[in-house]
Design a protein around this nucleic acid. Structure first.
Lengths: 288, 288
DNA sequence: TTACGAATGGTAGCGTTCTGTCATAAACAT
DNA sequence: ATGTTTATGACAGAACGCTACCATTCGTAA
């Protein structure tokens, strides 16, 4: 049995959930925590959606709410609304003050950059890129410096949904000469280059070499990049400037995730099977 | 045909309803007005209940919502849920038409998750965590599996703005025994653990060991994590579930970036100097 | 290990909500 | 007044949300 620790701001909902008689089970703790974290938008959820987001079954949600003394999800919503009315707060008002200040500005810019990705996804080159990555016999991924981590992460996650993905460490001396050694006749190969403007002088020669060797090249980069467009049509730009000490890489991460999702979507059953068989996930299923 | 006059506080919902092409019919005007007046409790209502309260038939409500551009009442509720995004990020629904469909939904959820980070930043534990990371003599960073890349990236970027940052590869056998070997009297040390629920059984013992050794522990995790709260107050939850094949790590990356920004902000001149001197950036200044 | 109880999920069924089709009523122009 | 267009409602089918019953899995203690 679990307990959820009281946080500074103690809402009536949180109090009620924490004090459920007999403590909480693992699933219940997850549900309770999720409910507390998402209290502000609960009115719009359904039992099924909560179940989906918390990874438990619908019925467990239903049972838990009853155990907590609500009359089903409907009853919970009524309680919440009553509290809202009482506090004279409209749901949209309640966030406004949160996004003031410097951090708020950064978050807003990042969120905006994420939404702006919709433009990239609409380009004809987008599905072309997804096809290239999905259909390739072998996919290479590379990226430098402050975005190397993203590139590695992308390679790791992409290899969950499809095989034959390699991360290329660009500073391992033999990179450029090494690519051709993998050449076999009529094999389709694809390079995904994650780039930011400051590192262009390293990225450009690699892309050019890859092109010469007949690889398809997909480039994900920031808005400042001007060279990639003349090398390959499959270039996607992400806003990274948020006036912080360092550029933001969040939106870029989101774009990489979307790419993975779409590649997986090209062969959904296979992807699902791979995810299921992925050993680390298998091992990790136990929550404790 | 009727029109609803704009009121002082113009909610996105009201704006949208008023601007329906071709004006409003009598019944529609009634519905629209009722919706605007009761916006705050809409989550509770159903098509039938709205019909009953406004004295029109259910289907008229349904039709009107469609004409206003919502996908039924469900769609309206979804839009309200995304009020954060709409209110702060896309005035004049810049991306509106782009955000339909599966990818649009993923992007919206990610953007929403980014804005929701404002909640985390407001917690008292937040500045405590920033202080801990900024003031520590040594910072350790770790993370597993699909978020290992983020952890590495965070370590790399954090070490641009402050020194003595180490990424711990948790599968290098000697991790747990290795931490104490760095112990020196009255040194302040801090562990930043990036976690997701499936990997808890690896994360928990590391955090416990770190605590036992007197390290401050900051945990960044998803909404499903329920164990971290009882280990340390400095826990931050990020929404990662976007109904894609894999969870989204974009918002988490954004949070890590914000942490770096704030840590840098604790000693701005020093951070700026470090960034300026960071060799890879120096070398990369030429754009080509 | 085996066995037991608790916790959880699957399936099915019921009730509710939502929407498409057709019919009726109202508004308007001639 | 009459015909035409537009708005609205009644009904029914489809979809969805919720919960009861039973099977399975998990955790724990001999």
């Amino acid at each position: 049995m679990n307990e959820i620790l009281p946080s500074a701001e103690e809402s009536p909902l949180a109090a009620r959930l924490r004090s459920v008689a007999g403590g909480l089970t693992k699933s219940e703790a997850i549900i309770a925590q999720w409910l507390i974290l998402n209290e502000s938008t609960l009115g719009l959820e359904t039992g099924a959606s909560i179940a989906a987001r918390t990874g438990v079954s619908e019925i467990t949600v239903s049972r838990f709410l009853k155990r907590a003394g609500y009359k089903g999800l409907q009853g919970l919503k009524e309680d919440l609304q009553a509290a809202l009315v009482h506090a004279h707060v409209s749901p949209s008002d309640r966030y406004f003050r949160l996004l003031d200040g410097e951090i708020g500005a950064i978050l807003k810019r990042d969120a905006d950059a994420v939404l702006a990705l919709a433009h990239e996804v609409e380009k004809p080159a987008w599905s072309q890129a997804i096809d290239a990555i999905a259909a390739a016999d072998e996919v290479f991924v590379t990226g430098f410096q402050t975005i190397r981590g993203i590139a590695e992460d992308f390679a790791r996650r992409l290899s969950i949904v499809r095989g034959s993905v390699r991360f290329l460490s660009p500073h391992d001396s033999g990179l450029v000469e090494w690519i051709p050694s993998f050449r076999r006749a009529d094999e389709k190969r694809c390079l995904v280059m994650i780039d930011m403007a400051p590192y262009a002088h390293e990225a450009l020669p690699i892309v050019q070499t890859a092109r010469r060797l007949g690889l398809q090249v997909v480039v994900v980069t920031d808005e400042l990049n001007t060279w990639a467009g003349s090398e390959t049509p499959m270039v996607f730009h992400v806003a990274t400037k948020v006036d912080a000490f360092l550029e933001s890489t969040g939106p870029m991460t989101t774009l990489m995730n979307v790419i993975i999702h779409e590649v997986a979507g090209r062969a959904p059953e296979k992807a699902r099977k791979r995810i299921k068989d992925w050993p680390p996930i298998m091992r990790g299923l136990g929550l404790y």
